[in-house]
Design a protein around this nucleic acid. Structure first.
Length: 829
RNA sequence: GCCGGGGUGGCGAAAUUGGCAGACGCAUGGGACUUAAAAUCCCAAGCUCUUAACGAGCGUGCGGGUUCGAUUCCCGCCCCCGGCACCA
């Protein structure tokens, strides 16, 4: 029995600490710009320091680490940094509850989680670590805010905003999910507030069209961004004093009334001028009181009232009544629509309810126009125009073109594009965030804090009550300032920035993390950026990833970066579930990485979460799967130990002296190199990379066994190539085990400095191949032949095969198809 | 409703260009080793029929099509997941 070693000899925990210390002592993963090497920027979405990372979080860091370690072995200068998205509500809410200052809890959480990541052996350049809650980071949020203000990209306006009554703060549109707060789920209410906005809509078109070029982003994410930006082409048309937006100008002859949103500015004027302003206003406020979620979802019944006004349809020149309707949205388009009840279902229902005129102006291409008396729903498909004056007979498509042109010629409107995307409201009435660097002066209005006075440091707050607006308003020495322009008494802005501002550019800061004169040196960013490989949760598909793309464009337009797209390749990793649920402290189903490391070592944990499924797939945690990964690492360990002495005495491989078994192992070795390389580097399918290595190990066991019976003089050289190649390929997944074996195999220094194994096509070349033979599409036999066999010879062999004959006897051979190197297909009749 | 992704053994999955479906692993069963167990090593295993071997049939959500050949391509459905949604 040759495999007398037992698992007890594989003690991963000792290796873990040994190599983690070695990497730290040698600064193995710290990098500087080096133009002699190709660069690779590998990044995982930085972490919110919640306190403890569970295996679900950790999976993402392992994904990034495999890519980073592999690219290093391929000779790239790899930047792989990490940091902390350290501002935000949970720390502040905890402070309200338990009185511990957010800064204290955040910094201690960071310390703990950093320890967790270090115990996982993730190859981070820790010298570039950053935390967004520190002034040396957030001062550049402030610096950038001022640049955006100067360029008209940051502006202040009073508007109706989403308000979370539980978090006591404003939410961006992107932070409202199904009518509730993205963080706590509390139904969102509306509030009128003076707010700071970033003009992301200026880039709506660019963000949408450039998305097409993101060929290494998942389709899912691009779709979500497209949906979110929501482009629709149409026309703006003047109905007298009311401008409407429509995508169906072809139906304008059927526009029999006009609908205004309750928020539309004209509505208030109409109320003032109406016969009964009080009743009018009551209606408006009732509509506006209907919660937005309900209004949007259609759960609230469509209703409206007549304003007493009429305007002129510019195409029919007929007067049409103006109504206010609760389902028309003030913030989309012009807040006014032309109603075409015959061809829009909402308008149809509204017209039936209030007995408004319906006029059919489009008929189906191959049918009759609907009859107003008998129709039961709107006909919303495109078709052919009727009742549309001299344009009858035009297709909807053609009519849209012509009517838009006519509107333009007559000064009645023009073709426009509407976006669903709205400007990003960034003011937050909370403490734990970046102070907005603005001053309100009674003389000079809104004045930015001069650059020289940055950062505006977040003052220490003694008490956290959670009541009232902006906590900073309660700190007089913060609020009361002199105006930088006139020197008079002024008031500092007391809102803080949305934490998504922090995360929209941190990846640039990593390129130059300690710069205290600029957010970053453009030359350093030009060297490292864009990020080549970015991974994180799909929950950031809209918020973080659209904001970051926006910021990249802002930096570009400021002349600080050269590219528009910050992330070349994106991988959205699947979550790790436990018992079918997302892991969470409250559900009590978290799997703690440190506990697992204690049982089987880091490498088995790393290997397991990568082997269980492709990285973007959601997976269910399995203890026995983890055990399986441990068993396999032990198997690798044993085979390596078994060959160690022989390999160290090996003579160089003599290709001419190899036995058939030797050649088979070499073939497997090089085939494995090919598969693992493309699986990691190109396909990002780490699970199949691991299976390929498992197959190699299985073959090595069989080969080792065979050596007992038929020893080969070349065995040590063959085993050396296979096992050393395996160690290097395994090292991104199981770096501690790999480093130890590498050292035991007599190598000095860490694996960080060796090269990825080279694929040798000649060695991988098959000597004979198995050709399946099908008769009428059914597998009947297999032939073992040389890959170079001539088609004619192969056909003869196939037809003469004993397993094939019974199916061809007495029948006519109609055809024999030979797929080179794949199979033989015989058709009989 | 619109857009995107998916549906393969008991389970996680694989099949890279239309070419042997189920690699690799988990769980399971059997064997070797052991006084015994664990561990380890080896073997088996899609389903059905057949005592079993040999073998035959069926099989990648469903129904059609193209093809010598379809998990893969086309048409029509069903179901699941995600996004958007009274957006004019």
């Amino acid at each position: 029995m040759i495999f007398c070693t037992t698992v007890s000899e594989y003690h991963p925990q000792q290796l873990d600490t040994k190599w983690q210390k070695r990497w730290a002592d040698t600064r193995a993963f710290e990098v500087t710009e080096d133009t002699s090497k190709p660069k690779f920027y590998c990044l995982e979405m930085f972490a919110y320091p919640s306190g403890h990372a569970h295996v679900g979080h950790v999976r993402n860091y392992i994904i990034g680490d495999i890519v980073a370690r592999m690219k290093r072995l391929q000779g790239f200068n790899v930047l792989h940094p990490f940091g902390w998205d350290a501002f935000g509500l949970p720390a502040e809410n905890a402070a309200i509850k338990n009185g511990i200052h957010p800064e204290v809890s955040t910094l201690s959480n960071i310390a703990h989680m950093k320890g967790q990541l270090q115990r996982l052996g993730i190859s981070y350049a820790w010298e570039r670590e950053l935390a967004t809650c520190l002034p040396d980071y957030y001062r550049w949020n402030q610096w950038l805010f001022i640049r955006m203000f100067e360029n008209g990209l940051a502006y202040r306006r009073r508007s109706t905003v989403n308000w979370c009554p539980s978090c006591n703060t404003v939410l961006a549109n992107e932070q409202v999910v199904d009518g509730g707060c993205w963080r706590c789920g509390t139904p969102v209410t509306q509030k009128d507030l003076e707010q700071w906005f970033f003009r992301i809509t200026a880039y709506a078109d660019d963000l949408l069209t450039a998305a097409e070029s993101l060929s290494k982003w998942p389709e899912k994410v691009l779709t979500m961004q497209r949906n979110w930006i929501g482009r629709s082409e149409g026309a703006r048309v003047t109905f007298g004093e009311i401008d409407v937006f429509t995508t169906r100008i072809d139906t304008i002859f059927g526009a029999t009334f006009v609908l205004l949103a309750p928020e539309h500015p004209l509505v208030a004027r109409y109320a003032d001028q109406s016969a009964d302003p009080t009743a009018f206003r009551e209606q408006i406020s009732r509509f506006r009181g209907q919660d937005r979620a309900g209004r949007i979802s259609g759960a609230v019944e469509k209703e409206g009232f007549f304003t007493g006004r009429s305007v002129i349809n510019p195409f029919t020149n007929a007067p049409v009544p103006v109504w206010v309707a609760n389902f028309v949205l003030g913030e989309y388009g012009t807040g006014a629509v032309m109603a075409v009840p015959a061809h829009d279902q909402r308008d149809y229902e509204f017209a039936r309810k209030y007995d408004l005129p319906i006029k059919v102006v489009v008929r189906p291409e191959d049918g009759q126009a609907a009859d107003v008396g008998t129709m039961t729903e709107a006909v919303s498909n495109d078709g052919v125009l009727v009742n549309s004056d001299r344009w009858d007979g035009l297709s909807s498509d053609e009519a849209r073109r012509q009517f838009t042109a006519i509107a333009r010629q007559r000064g009645l409107g023009e073709g426009t594009v509407q976006y669903r995307l709205k400007d990003w409201g960034i003011s937050r009435q909370r403490y734990w965030g970046t102070p907005i660097p603005m001053i309100h002066c009674p003389q000079d209005g809104i004045v930015p804090v001069p650059d020289a006075q940055l950062p505006v440091v977040l003052p220490k707050l003694a008490e956290f009550s959670g009541r009232g607006d902006s906590p900073l308003a309660q700190v007089p020495e913060f609020v009361n300032v002199v105006c930088p322009t006139c020197g008079g008494a002024a008031r500092r802005e007391t809102d803080t920035m949305d934490t998504f501002v922090d995360s929209s550019w941190y990846f640039y800061r990593f390129a130059d993390a300690h710069n205290d004169a600029m957010p970053f040196d453009p030359a350093k960013v030009a060297y490292w950026c864009p990020v080549d490989f970015y991974s994180g949760g799909v929950e950031h598909a809209i918020l973080h990833l659209i904001y970051s793309r926006f910021f990249a464009r802002v930096f570009r337009d400021l002349g600080l970066v050269e590219h528009a797209e910050p992330f070349t390749q994106l991988l959205t990793q699947g979550m790790v579930l436990k018992d079918g649920n997302v892991m969470s402290k409250s559900k009590g189903n978290v799997v703690d990485p440190d506990t697992m490391i204690g049982k089987v070592g880091v490498d088995a944990l790393r290997l397991y979460v990568m082997f269980v499924a492709p990285p973007e797939k959601e997976v269910e945690w399995s203890d026995s799967g983890l055990d399986g990964s441990f068993r396999w690492l032990a198997r690798v360990w044993h085979i390596a130990q078994h060959w160690k002495a022989q390999v160290s005495a090996a003579t160089p491989l003599d290709a001419a002296a190899l036995s058939a078994a030797d050649r088979a192992v070499r073939r497997k070795t090089h085939d494995t190199i090919r598969r693992v390389t493309t699986d990691i580097d190109v396909r990002k399918q780490f699970n199949t990379a691991i299976s390929a290595m498992m197959e190699l190990v299985n073959d090595l066991y069989a080969y080792t066994k065979l050596q007992e019976a038929e020893p080969s003089p070349q065995a040590a050289a063959v085993a050396k190539e296979a096992i050393e190649g395996l160690i290097v390929m395994l090292s991104p997944f199981a770096p501690h085990t790999a480093e130890e074996l590498w050292e035991e195999y007599g190598h000095r220094g860490t694996l960080a400095v060796v090269s990825w194994p080279a694929f040798d096509a000649a060695a991988a070349q098959a000597e004979e191949i198995v050709m399946p033979v099908q008769v009428n599409g059914k597998l009947r036999s297999r032939l073992t032949v040389s890959p170079e066999i001539a088609d004619a010879e192969l056909e003869q062999l196939a037809l003469a095969d004993v397993a094939v004959k019974p199916y061809t006897e007495g029948k006519t051979i109609k055809k024999v198809v030979i797929a080179k190197g794949r199979l033989v297909s015989i058709v009989v009749g």
